[in-house]
Design a binder for these strands. Structure first.
Lengths: 151, 151
DNA sequence: TATTGTTATACTCTATAACTATA
DNA sequence: TATAGTTATAGAGTATAACAATA
């Protein structure tokens, strides 16, 4: 098993055998690649994630999103405002203080482009993961996430 | 394959089948768990990572670290200053403008505690990953990271 | 001039506390 | 009073540009 340090052979990398370390490193690289794909669409990864969720859950509320995506409601505010400013998101009063969110026609269009970008991104990821391993990897990540949340 | 949404069954999560999404989510959870383990030691994940690397590469320079850990030299400055302020890191002039970094006696002590924390963390991760899959997962993450860097 | 290190800055993500509005 | 949403703020991670110091 080769160490991933290439340019300075005299250096040792004690982090290299650690799963947690490679999880962080890989996530940074993979997320940056997704950001590059989204850049022409004018939105970042967080906004795109929100848009995808919204497209599948028209009329949901901000707290629905917070629960599903495990995001702090406070952190969703700037994302929602950005999407509203772009004219892709529509707000309607719901019960109580709730506001229901849905996509405008422009929103549906952007949603389609974002979906396509995510699909391209996932298929690029798929090139590094044997197809028959994909579900196993997915299950493993979910398991790891659950366990890390309750240590 | 069950969706990881539990509380609101009427909601759909279109992100759930995506590897990239679970990579991000899991990394956040796993890194937060490591931060909790390090908190009693008074350092964060970045500082601890630097300390581990330093312990294995006494006398290396800041640019060595930047290359090995793929960190921007500018971002290492506050970490190095923090460790120097704690009295765990020693700076000596090197060739050119370079400064060689090494651990003090206190640094070696902290290094031992940090190593132990990382080991506990990795073994907790190991509980979610079958032992016979560990190397495969590691290889997969490295591959994914490499491919994401050159899309 | 090339390398190394530093400063300043900015953007993103995450988190918490404190506040407002509505049933 | 409980729920939903907002504001302000703080900290960590990442990135770039501009600058200083040294061989």
């Amino acid at each position: 098993m080769s160490n991933s340090l290439s340019p300075s052979p005299e250096l040792v990398d004690p982090l290299d055998p650690l799963i947690g370390y490679h999880l962080r490193r890989t996530t940074v690289a993979v997320t940056a690649a997704l950001a590059d794909l989204l850049q022409p669409l004018g939105i970042n990864v967080g906004e795109a994630t929100l848009l995808l969720f919204l497209g599948a859950n028209q009329g949901c509320t901000q707290s629905d999103i917070g629960r599903a995506l495990r995001a702090q409601p406070a952190n969703l505010v700037p994302l929602i405002n950005k999407l509203a400013l772009l004219g892709v998101l529509d707000k309607q009063p719901g019960k109580g203080r709730a506001i229901t969110l849905s996509l405008t026609v422009d929103g549906e269009r952007l949603h389609a482009s974002v979906s396509e970008a995510f699909e391209r991104h996932e298929s690029r990821i798929g090139r590094s993961i044997p197809a028959e391993r994909r579900d196993e990897v997915l299950a493993l990540l979910r398991q790891l996430c659950r366990d890390a949340c309750h240590p």
